[in-house]
């Protein structure tokens, strides 16, 4: 090997090491950042299911982690402001976002992130604040009410997404909006623990 090749190899090794180090530090078992489509989500779901099946967790916990992953990932498909498809499109959507599944002290957590229009942030914040202050019984009751009500305009699901995440998480959900310098978008992050 030439001296040049050795130097390139060293650099590669060091990049890999620092990436792996960060992965360990953040308890990553699964991380994806990029385009979200239904096919990509279904493929990740398959990988996650295998991982969960070998985690030694109860079937109910496995289903809750799986359910939360799907709700969050489909939220990115439908609502990320960084989109390659039309805003009102309902099929074959392609949008940008990230999902991070980790395991800390034997417990799973999922974080998802995607840009949203800054104008949507206040309403989302209100809904999420309300969910944070609700007990499990109140969340279940709100879920039942929503299940029986008409869909909201602009909703592509059933208005049940956040409620489902809050219902399945074992602790109150956490969220954060990171306002972007352009003033038009905010990065939205949502975290659930199990």
């Amino acid at each position: 090997m030439t001296e040049h090749t050795l130097r390139v190899n060293d650099m590669l090794q060091s990049e890999i090491n620092s990436f792996r180090e960060l992965e360990r530090k953040c308890n990553v078992i699964f991380y994806y950042s990029g385009l979200f489509s239904q096919n990509i989500v279904a493929a990740m779901a398959e990988a996650l299911k295998q991982r969960l099946a070998h985690s030694g967790n109860k079937a109910a916990t496995q289903r809750k982690v799986f359910s939360t992953f799907i709700e969050m990932a489909q939220n990115v498909i439908h609502y990320s402001a960084d989109t390659f498809s039309d805003v009102d499109q309902q099929d074959d959507e392609l949008r940008h976002g990230a999902v991070w599944i980790g395991e800390s002290e034997g417990k799973f957590f999922i974080v998802c992130g995607n840009p949203v229009a800054a104008s949507r942030a206040p309403r989302m914040r209100d809904r999420l604040n309300a969910l944070q202050s609700m007990s499990q019984e109140e969340i279940k009751a709100a879920y039942k009410t929503q299940l029986r009500s008409e869909n909201e305009a602009g909703s592509k699901g059933a208005g049940l997404g956040f409620l489902t995440v809050a219902r399945d998480a074992s602790e109150p959900i956490e969220f954060h909006f990171d306002e972007q310098p352009d003033g038009k978008t905010a990065m939205f992050y949502l975290k659930a623990k199990f």
Partner: peptide, 9 residues
């Protein structure tokens, strides 16, 4: 075995 929120509706 599993259905998402919009399927539930």
């Amino acid at each position: 075995a599993y259905f998402n929120s919009s399927s539930t509706k």
